[in-house]
Design a protein around this nucleic acid. Structure first.
Lengths: 338, 338
DNA sequence: TTCAGCACTCTCCCGGGGAGAGTGCTAGAT
DNA sequence: ATCTAGCACTCTCCCCGGGAGAGTGCTGAA
């Protein structure tokens, strides 16, 4: 595409994302292209419309980008907006004072993203592909009930109450704990599986089975923690003035199963993914754009962090700030060992 | 108040909560009081307006209840609506299949309340007034970093990463763990405090200080888990058609500090509290009613469960269903030991 | 290739008028 | 003393038409 057309497309996207009003040839001429006449701009606009990048709400209105227009913008025209110092400071403060547990950290991260992007945010807890057991603990609750506490790599804590077929005293459990820690500590689920196969029937095998089940859930991420925040920010945007639009987004956000589908999109993709309007799988997100990236304390422990807003979103700002929070959160999580 | 006036007030509340349209004398006559003329009903309505229980959006419109009108209704006229079997079944199913950890259970409870009341819900995790330590575990992460795992009464798990001034090996920690478990197991925070005062300077005192800090946070509930769900249900109600109303509610729900204030209202009150419109502390909840009750696995471990919706709410249905979920959740939590 | 000019289109806003719903009041019936 | 029928009145809601304003596409000249 010619440079001038690109410049005009960029200008339309910029104007429309800030003012939310279809932008006309005169506005472009006076604010961006003083050397061109509005008539020239008009004919360029008409061509951009033919190309499918722009559209008009009605024949005598200004232009606004189509989904493809936004797509072209983010693929070819966008450059990351520098982050103001106060925003940088805000992000640092929020992450520094975040609780040092997974749940608290993920919530804080989601809150921060929502605040700095002025949109809704989603975050899933970092998940390892293959979990290593760092420590294991067994506590007797009732004669025939044991609490299993699993500390995984990355200091993720998993717990589960296990009913056992035979009663077990705390002394027995303590002995078993020591033995299991010695054999499983630092090992991954395949090792636990080997021990399980080798173990004789009885309490130990029973408990090992549960350990494997917990690891499975962890690895498959089916029971993963997914939080959202900042829906109130969406309501400030005119596209959500009538509440039916909000309903649809809320359906996606409040239904964890939708969210996991949404977040799963990122798997195997590059570290930044932008899904615009009709590109979304779920019809509820028509008119919305989703920006996703990953974060986590280590290479092997990654969660997804994302922004949901109207397609008319300040993409360059959103991407820059989202990535800043993701980097900050990753560092912080590595530091406190969440 | 005379019986007939009460009956008319009840009828107005009933009509208005189902149709969301101001109710006129003819509608009441044809649907509730066939033996009375609409003129008679009109004069009764006028008197109820004088008493402050009813109001009209404009002079020639039907009547709708004021906040005091709803207050009179819930205090004197409301009787609990029986719960249909399918709803009962739904509640039972949701609770039966709920995850057996605090986080998951609280989220499931909130989800269930939102679903059966068709409004937004809030839930705080059950909190003990005085926490007893059931089990304690120390894991060495780095030479000078220890993970403290506290298992409290009711199988609440608290964890914290503690940087220590002096390095500690896992062997040392294991010994210390055994000693602390023996002395603190089954005891509450006052006992921990006694041990802390008596302990000589060093690792043990340092760790005991952290244990007390965790218990403090737990007892004061400042870092408590508060979740909400079902905001999408609110959007179905006509009073939330313009999204600014939703914004205000979302501000309350998404700001945990508001929520904790809201939930704290219940402390020291009866087991069911209904806050209607202007009775709300926070101005954001004008036009909204909040119904709160408590739930939890035991007498000493209680959380708050609530419904937030428009003042035009089916109170008798909401209260009945909320209490049903609270009872069910309490039983389930006691059963699985969450 | 660019630009000025022009006719055209469509939305938005405003005011008027009619339909409809519901009220308060009054005089008569029970 | 209480209830009821009738009636005039009020107010909203909705539809309609016209004028202002913004922006377009097209055309012919530079």
């Amino acid at each position: 595409m010619e440079d001038r057309k690109q410049a005009i497309l960029r200008a339309v996207v910029h104007e429309f994302t800030t003012n939310a009003v279809p932008v006309g040839s005169q506005a472009l001429q006076s604010r961006y292209f003083v050397n061109l006449s509005s008539a020239t701009i008009r004919s360029e606009l008409a061509e951009l419309s033919d190309l499918g990048y722009l559209t008009q709400p009605h024949t005598s209105a200004g232009r606004m980008p189509t989904d493809s227009g936004y797509r072209y913008f983010v693929d070819f025209l966008m450059d990351l907006e520098p982050i103001p110092d106060r925003i940088k400071g805000f992000i640092a403060d929020e992450l520094r004072t975040a609780p040092a547990d997974v749940q608290g950290m993920v919530e804080r991260v989601a809150m921060t993203v929502a605040a700095v992007t002025q949109n809704a945010s989603v975050a899933s807890a970092p998940q390892g592909s293959m979990a290593r057991i760092k420590h294991l603990d067994l506590v007797s609750l009732e004669p025939k009930e044991v609490l299993l506490i699993l500390l995984l790599e990355g200091n993720l804590l998993r717990q589960q109450v296990i009913p056992t077929t035979e009663p077990a005293t705390q002394t027995q459990l303590t002995r078993l704990t020591a033995r299991l820690n010695a054999s499983l500590g630092g090992r991954a689920s395949d090792e636990a599986r080997r021990h399980y196969d080798a173990a004789p029937l009885g309490l130990e095998k029973e408990l090992l089975g549960r350990v494997i089940a917990v690891l499975d859930i962890y690895e498959k991420g089916s029971e993963s923690l997914v939080v959202h925040d900042g829906v109130r920010n969406l309501l400030r945007h005119p596209e959500f003035a009538e509440s039916s639009r909000v309903t649809q987004v809320l359906e996606v956000l409040e239904e964890t199963r939708y969210l996991t589908i949404l977040l799963r999109q990122l798997i195997g993709e590059s570290d930044l993914q932008i899904v615009i309007g009709s590109e979304n799988m779920t019809s509820q997100l028509q008119g919305c754009a989703v920006v996703l990236t990953t974060y986590g304390p280590s290479e092997r422990l990654k969660g997804v962090l994302g922004v949901i807003g109207p397609t008319r979103m300040a993409y360059s700002q959103t991407v820059a700030r989202l990535q800043a929070v993701a980097r900050g959160a990753s560092d912080r999580m590595a530091e406190v060992g969440v």
